[in-house]
Design a binder for these strands. Structure first.
Length: 516
RNA sequence: GUUCCUGUGGACGAAUUGGUUAAGUCACUGCUCUUUCACAGCAGAGAUUACGGGUUCGAGCCCCGUCGGGAAUACCA
């Protein structure tokens, strides 16, 4: 165990965990496993207005389903808790005070309404307002007001915020593991709020304080944080923690399937694809989503797919178990450009996992999907169906959908082949063959095949004379699993029944053909 | 608008870090196998490495500019 390597995944419980967040969690997880470090789950719930109950348990359930285990966290415990920022509220004040006392921050008394009014005014002039080293001189804060005035306001109990006092004319250098050196000019930075009017810290303060207190060694997070990293570095400096500052790695964005913009929650519905790990019940239908799990994806496949969205091992291997990923993973092979979310590729990964998964296991996974459709069948039967169908589908529900004929009567017979080759005279041969097969001591795929071959030979018939019709009678389509395997699964009685129901339908097609 | 990030076939992306013929996978097309579909195997098509300059014996890789894409710009994270 390397106790110097400590990473955290720090989602905020404002809704379901989006697939980009899952990838961030995954990269944190992989690096920790690779290095033998510690992985921490920290809930960043400093915004009570956007807080959504159930989001935290959703996050934990998702992570569990995916098989990513954490070493420290709200439910798990650990020596650096509590792991919810709301429960750490009392901690942050003294650091904000430290900033004030050392001249790195100041009190600001502008109300939210006043600020939005100013922003609007700037906007009407096609400018963007920024609370910074220039504009703060015109605003209501402890830098412009006299010490006495500030005393009075503070004593009155009126709400205030604490803002970071960004120095003028300096450069802040970020040394990012994936981006290299990035330089920001402090004159371009705004005086970000550290402590909000309600006494809660903002992300920026809480994040830095907690990362320091929790001895975080590496911050692996999304690219959207890169612009505020300069503020974070300044904070480490002002708090006197610069020498133990974590290393940063900013992950590339995940882009929408059409390449325009970053993948968002609503893209799931828009493109008919999952963008969440598991389903989420929102307050109304448009806030509810199905996840990869409900789409019938295997967690290993989702992880494997996600791992390759912005990273690759540099070898030709593509199928990796979670532990193999951890073994191969390095931060420096993370790519810089945003990666497009390609659902077809995700499906391919899933199919690969489906194929390599044991049939009995798949049968078990299939059960809830079968139940949903009202199919009550044995585990053995589901296992057999899974075995026959897994190479032919991308996701589990498809087994039930395209293989519906394993569970209910044929809905429709594919007419093309019937029209082309069917002749009512063939009934006799099919029936005779079927009778021969029914009387076999063992109604099993291989036996059925040899027996059929014997029959065909004895009656000088070809495969094409009986096969297509047998197949259509049993499944309604010319596509699908091997015929004899289907027969074995269906059983003699069902096969016979399907044959007899099919014949009138075939004849009808034949009659239509003659009459036209 | 401003700041920052980014740009290799349709998609993901490789290229011993400046060394000559730009991998591989997904998707697409064809062939083989197969009673069908799929899987698998083989083959094919698809790229002036966004564009323009520069440095160099040599540039996908370094520098400058242009253009495109993205993110940030909240008392949200």
């Amino acid at each position: 165990m390397n106790d110097k390597i400590r990473l955290r995944f720090a989602p905020s419980p404002t809704g379901p965990l989006h697939i980009g967040g899952v990838r961030t969690a995954l990269y944190n997880y992989l690096f920790v496993k690779k290095m033998g470090g510690t992985l921490i789950l920290r809930i960043e719930d400093t915004d009570q207005e956007r807080y959504v109950s159930g989001a935290e348990s959703y996050i934990i359930e998702s992570l569990q389903w995916l098989g990513m285990n954490f070493d420290e966290g709200p439910e798990i415990g650990g020596d650096f808790g509590p792991y919810r920022q709301s429960e750490r509220k009392s901690l942050y004040g003294k650091y904000a005070q430290h900033l004030i006392d050392n001249g790195y921050a100041y009190y600001a008394f502008d109300t939210a309404e006043e600020l939005t009014a100013i922003r609007k005014e700037y906007e009407s002039r096609k400018e963007t307002f920024r609370y910074d080293g220039i504009t703060r001189q015109q605003l209501k804060n402890s830098l412009t007001l006299s010490a006495e005035e500030v005393e009075v306001i503070l004593a009155s109990g009126a709400p205030y915020t604490i803002r970071l006092k960004i120095p003028r004319d300096e450069e802040v250098l970020i040394n990012d593991i994936v981006r290299g050196e990035v330089v920001f000019q402090t004159n371009e930075l705004d005086d970000k709020i550290m402590l909000k009017g309600d006494g809660m810290p903002t992300y920026h303060l809480a994040n830095i304080v907690d990362d320091h207190l929790m001895k975080i060694s590496h911050v692996v997070r999304g690219e959207e944080w890169l612009p505020s990293t300069a503020h974070h570095i300044l904070l480490y400096r002002f708090l006197g923690w610069e020498d133990t500052m974590p290393q940063f790695a900013h992950l590339p964005l995940i882009l929408r399937p059409n390449g325009k913009g970053k993948l968002s929650k609503r893209d799931g519905a828009k493109f008919g694809i999952p963008v969440f790990p598991i389903s989420w019940e929102g307050e109304n239908p448009e806030d509810s989503f199905e996840g990869f799990r409900e789409f019938g994806f295997m967690p290993e496949a989702v992880l494997n797919f996600l791992a390759f969205l912005g990273w690759n091992p540099g070898t030709e291997q593509e199928i990796f178990s979670l532990s193999e990923l951890a073994e191969a993973f390095t931060l420096d092979r993370i790519s810089k450009a945003g990666a497009r979310f390609d659902f077809e590729k995700a499906s391919w990964f899933n199919q690969q996992y489906l194929i390599q998964t044991d049939n009995a296991e798949l049968g078990k996974l299939l059960k809830p999907f079968a139940k949903e459709k009202g199919y009550e069948v044995s585990d053995e039967y589901l296992t057999a169906v899974a075995g026959m169908m897994k190479e032919r589908v991308n996701a589990l529900p498809e087994v039930i959908e395209t293989g519906y004929y394993f569970f209910e009567p044929i809905r429709e017979y594919e007419e093309k082949m019937i029209r082309k080759k069917w002749n009512p005279d063939r009934k006799a041969a099919l029936l005779a063959l079927n009778e021969q097969l029914e009387n076999l001591p063992d109604y099993q795929a291989e036996k059925l095949e040899t027996s059929t071959k014997e029959y065909l030979e004895a009656n000088s018939l070809g495969f094409g004379d009986v096969f297509p019709f047998y197949r259509i009678a049993l499944s309604g389509t010319t596509k699908g699993p091997a015929l004899f395997e289907m027969m074995e699964a269906l059983g003699t009685a069902e096969v016979k029944k399907r044959l007899l129901t099919a014949f009138p339908a075939f004849d009808e097609v034949f009659a239509k053909k003659i009459n036209s």
